[in-house]
């Protein structure tokens, strides 16, 4: 078949990836769940029944309403309310938007940093490669959560208290991003080492294409598959890292709660029996991370790069 005359949709339908996708119920179910979560988080204003950050809509009388199906529940608040009378469902959706934004930005940051370093290290080799790889080795032995905590602690020292709450999200993105990049650097270096000895690279070198163009225009598209797989699994890790940091109280401030902050707030009410305040954000987080992991597993099997 002539590939050029087919529309994009036809080409997708014709591909192996599409075939394996429709044959895998896990992949379909997890991507449907993810689509729903992404959609309702990014268009949260349209989806959420309430705006939990609009003080005029809150009433302390509504505080600690249990979920609607339990005895004292109100049908208005499907998943109940928290200590300030905020509707849990809306708060979770707003929180998941923050978690997703931080997760995506952090992983994008570490992807760009890691791929740039790994690609150039693999391409140029020599001392430069040695130094870059040594740094990744050292950093891989430091657990990423510790790394992120340290970065966050240093940032707190450097930035004044007033500024810190505003900057918290950027600090968080940077902290998580900087702790995840070695994975990308390693994989992209390994893939570059394979690619750079292929004929098309020699050909471009001979006709005088510049190094930068070869690296980013010719090699990069060929090593994207393993990077995408790592990126997907990394996204789950980044979201978990974000919520962990927020849970520990060093992440995003409580004024704009993410899923982790919500779980932490709810944790205080656990002993007095208000389980739903912490339970629903936690379940939401687990479903989100689990779906991304399942999708990542499927991608690894399908794209089948040799990951170590």
């Amino acid at each position: 078949m002539d590939n050029k005359n087919m529309s994009i949709i036809e080409r997708i339908k014709d591909s192996d990836i599409y075939f394996s996708f429709i044959k895998s119920p896990t992949a379909i179910i997890s991507s449907i769940i993810l689509l729903i979560i992404f959609f309702s988080s990014f268009f949260v204003e349209l989806v959420a029944p309430f705006n939990p950050f609009d003080p005029s809509s809150l009433s302390l009388m509504d505080a600690f309403t249990p979920p609607s199906w339990s005895q004292d529940g109100v049908s208005k608040f499907i998943l109940g309310t928290d200590g300030q009378g905020r509707d849990m469902l809306s708060t979770i959706l707003y929180g998941s938007r923050i978690s997703l934004i931080v997760g995506f930005s952090a992983i994008l940051f570490s992807l760009i940093l890691g791929v740039a370093l790994g690609l150039t290290a693999g391409y140029f080799g020599g001392k430069y490669e040695m130094i870059v790889m040594r740094i990744t080795d050292v950093q891989l032995t430091v657990p990423s959560i510790l790394m992120a905590l340290l970065v966050d602690g240093i940032a707190r020292g450097l930035i004044s208290k007033e500024l810190h709450d505003e900057m918290a999200i950027y600090v968080l993105i940077f902290a998580i991003g900087i702790s995840e990049w070695p994975q990308f650097a390693r994989v992209s270096r390994a893939a570059t080492l394979v690619e750079k000895n292929k004929d098309y690279v020699s050909a471009s070198t001979i006709i005088g294409v510049s190094n930068i163009l070869i690296m980013f225009k010719h090699i990069l598209p060929n090593i994207l598959r393993p990077i995408l797989v790592i990126g997907t699994i990394g996204l789950a890790l980044a979201i978990i890292a974000e919520s962990t940091l927020s849970f520990l109280g060093v992440g995003v401030p409580p004024t704009t709660p993410s899923l982790g902050t919500l779980i932490r707030i709810g944790n205080d009410f656990l002993f007095s029996g208000e389980w739903w305040i912490t339970f629903f954000p936690a379940i939401f987080l687990v479903v989100l991370a689990f779906s991304i992991n399942l999708l990542g597993d499927w991608m690894r099997d399908t794209l089948n790069p040799k990951l170590n």
Partner: peptide, 22 residues
């Protein structure tokens, strides 16, 4: 075990507390 990888440590901890302590 796959589910275990997706469960953040603190969520497991909270679930345990709720189940065994509360």
């Amino acid at each position: 075990s796959l589910l275990g990888v997706s469960l953040p440590t603190f969520v497991i901890g909270i679930l345990f507390i709720y189940l065994f302590a509360v």
